[in-house]
Design a protein around this nucleic acid. Structure first.
Lengths: 239, 239
DNA sequence: GAGTGTGAAGGAATTCACAGCA
DNA sequence: TGCTGTGAATTCCTTCACACTC
């Protein structure tokens, strides 16, 4: 390192971006801090937080200086302040308008789960391509026709979209979001999708998760010489 | 909290372990290769596979030498052979016996989704603590009482367990698996669980995933100076 | 020539260790 | 003294470039 050019690392980009692994840990911290808040605890140390989240203390400190630098030396972090800072970092300090495409079993399960406002989201629409499902109730909402997506997305200001449709339909749904207010897409369909510019995509394939787990889980009763290395601690998101 | 202690590095283990990021990419490769197989394509290059999976070609080669070293120089990878090798690596070369705890909306949705044998799993039991749900059908199975878990798990040789119960019940369910044939646990409850020794845990919290996505998805229409760095490509599992 | 396997270089994230503030 | 914030060291993963095989 230390080549001739001192800085100017990311050309033109002012981007002081937080490492992705750190971002994925923030919701874990947030959940832990909210739990402390609920118990009336007003201060927490990096060590205590680390223990609650199953990570090292120094990584907690580094993460928080990146994303929520509200610690006080010799004291710790004020829980209320820290929770607010993390929520702001994750942009869930206001409930974000959310839509779900696919009113099948998975889609409706997600709709009910995410309707808890504590998660930071507000479900404003559920769509389905099947005419039989359109008009059916899901929680306090009514299923809308997928063909009305663009209009409704704009009208209701949807910012995030959960895609819970069959794999064959996923790319089509993804293409729909171009030019709408949607800037993030959580894809549960078991196929990769290419998103329009300006839209972030995160894929969550349940079968994939299980297969990864499967690798680390030996057949039991196995007196096979195979030791099967352990899964390195808090893998994956939610610790 | 983490499950297994951070250390205890599989003592005595000669440890030639594949990097975790590489493991998480294997299901993606597998899906792509199976798709090629279905098209009757019998050979694939690292470059072609990389393009299909949205990663670099050299990482594909490195991953495959780690986990499925079946390439032929100057030729490429035989798709059938590669698929078999990856399945073996992930231990899904035989359908793995799987149980689901929690027959609520999410649990039943997962049950139906995973009942497709192509994923490499065979659902052998669905449990619930609610007596009203016990005896109800889920697909071709009948919901069993959670209190019968240990007995049924042993009898049916369950190796993996999907936990789809409320957060308050997750640790209790996790504790149940001690001493059974279950060696892997996929936790959907939004709380960290500590697993018994010898059991790998992977947490998948849907709210967490959305919060991570939320960070990368700016409020639309935003003329806010905030540029919001883009999500670094194929984050998370499925490509 | 085509394309894998791999040492070596490069970069990113974690961990260490301690300086600095309350 | 207690605990955060942070340069420096370390470890891990990725990328490069090419030797080697078909």
């Amino acid at each position: 390192m230390a080549q001739s050019l001192p800085d100017l690392p990311a050309s033109g980009d002012a981007g002081r971006s937080v490492p992705l692994p750190a971002v994925t840990r923030m919701p874990v911290y947030l959940a832990a801090v909210e739990s402390l808040l609920a118990e009336g605890i007003s201060t927490v140390s990096s060590e205590a937080l680390a223990a609650a989240c199953g990570v090292g203390a120094s990584i907690v400190r580094r993460d928080l200086t990146h994303a929520a630098p509200v610690g006080r030396r010799g004291v710790g972090y004020d829980t209320a302040e820290l929770a607010a800072a993390i929520r702001a970092f994750l942009r869930v300090d206001r409930a974000r308008p959310l839509g779900i495409v696919g009113a099948g079993r998975l889609g409706t399960a997600l709709a009910h789960y995410l309707s808890d406002p504590r998660h930071g989201f507000e479900i404003r629409a559920v769509f389905d391509a099947d005419p039989d499902r359109v008009g059916q109730p899901v929680g306090s909402l009514t299923v809308s026709a997928e063909s009305d997506f663009r209009e409704i997305a704009r009208a209701r200001g949807l910012e995030l979209l959960v895609v819970a449709v069959p794999g064959s339909a996923a790319q089509g749904v993804t293409d729909m979001v171009a030019g709408t207010s949607v800037t993030g897409l959580l894809n549960f369909a078991p196929v990769p999708v290419r998103a329009p510019a300006g839209v972030s995509v995160r894929n969550v394939d349940l079968a994939t998760e299980l297969q990864v787990l499967s690798h680390f889980a030996p057949a039991s009763g196995g007196a096979d010489g195979e030791a099967a290395d352990p899964l390195p601690a808090n893998t994956k998101t939610g610790v």
